[in-house]
């Protein structure tokens, strides 16, 4: 479903990603963990071409892109849905319009049909009650669930989550995690960057520990969390336990 081949990324002479190969199969939930600055978010963003690799190739659902070809990037991008740390809802549109936007602009759907589909998705994230409100009137947790509905509306083959709960108040985190868990249970292929280790353990088939721009260690959650092999991963997990 997703294949990253020898990905390297340099930002102003600084090597952020130093050669990563990764495969994600259909229906798998893969979580990237690692310290801030380890490159995990950058790697995630390459999967929908918001960030372009300096070297290497990205395949999503057998589509790939060229750094100079915007059209190929859009094609790859349309395979996946992205959920951002800071939600990034469109503030000038209501929740319903946020979810409808891609259907109307990108899929050229008729307004009535788009509205119907958007309502189904808002129902799924339990937010039909606020459909006519603007994002600013909502809590962070509600905004993030709208953002998930907005991404799902495009019927993506893969969902990408970039620290979806990091900006949320603690009491709102669970509502968002529940929605993500539901998606996992439905068999959605997902890649998640998160600091919520308990959640990562519950929801993932595979954990990828990224350290200093390379894959430090990867495997099943049980193995990664209970039997870490490398000292880097052991140190990282200890640090989290102390916090």
């Amino acid at each position: 479903m997703i294949e990253l081949q020898n990905i390297k990324k340099t930002f102003n002479d600084k090597k952020v990603i130093k050669g990563i190969d990764l495969k994600v199969n259909q229906g798998e939930v893969v979580t990237f963990i690692g310290r801030s600055g380890s490159g995990k978010t950058t790697l995630l963003r390459m999967i929908n071409a918001l960030e372009l690799p300096t070297e290497g190739a990205v395949y999503v659902n057998s589509e790939t892109y060229d750094n100079k070809d915007k059209k190929s990037q859009i094609k790859v991008r349309r395979q996946s849905g992205m959920v951002f740390q800071s939600y990034n809802l469109f503030p000038h549109k209501t929740e319903l319009e946020n979810v409808m936007e891609g259907l109307i602009t990108v899929k050229k759907m008729k307004k009535a049909k788009a509205q119907q589909q958007a309502l189904v998705l808002l129902e799924k994230v339990d937010l039909t009650a606020v459909k006519d409100q603007r994002p600013n009137a909502l809590s962070g947790g509600q905004q993030q669930r709208v953002a998930i509905a907005r991404a799902l509306a495009m019927n993506p083959k893969v969902m990408l989550f970039d620290e979806p709960t990091s900006a949320l108040d603690p009491e709102l985190v669970n509502d968002v995690l529940r929605v993500i868990k539901d998606l996992a249970n439905e068999g959605m292929t997902m890649i998640i960057v998160t600091h919520e280790m308990r959640f990562a353990k519950e929801v993932s088939n595979k954990i990828v520990f990224i350290h200093d721009g390379v894959v430090g260690e990867s495997g099943a959650p049980e193995q990664i969390f209970n039997h870490p092999q490398t000292t880097e991963l052991q140190r990282f997990l200890n640090m989290l336990r102390e916090a």
Partner: peptide, 26 residues
């Protein structure tokens, strides 16, 4: 904010659609 452009791109919009529907109104 840059996140607005990224969000528009992430749902598959191209540059023109992003400018016209998301950036300019704001």
């Amino acid at each position: 904010p840059k996140g607005q452009t990224e969000a528009a791109y992430s749902i598959g919009m191209n540059y023109r659609q992003t400018i016209q529907r998301i950036i300019l109104p704001q």
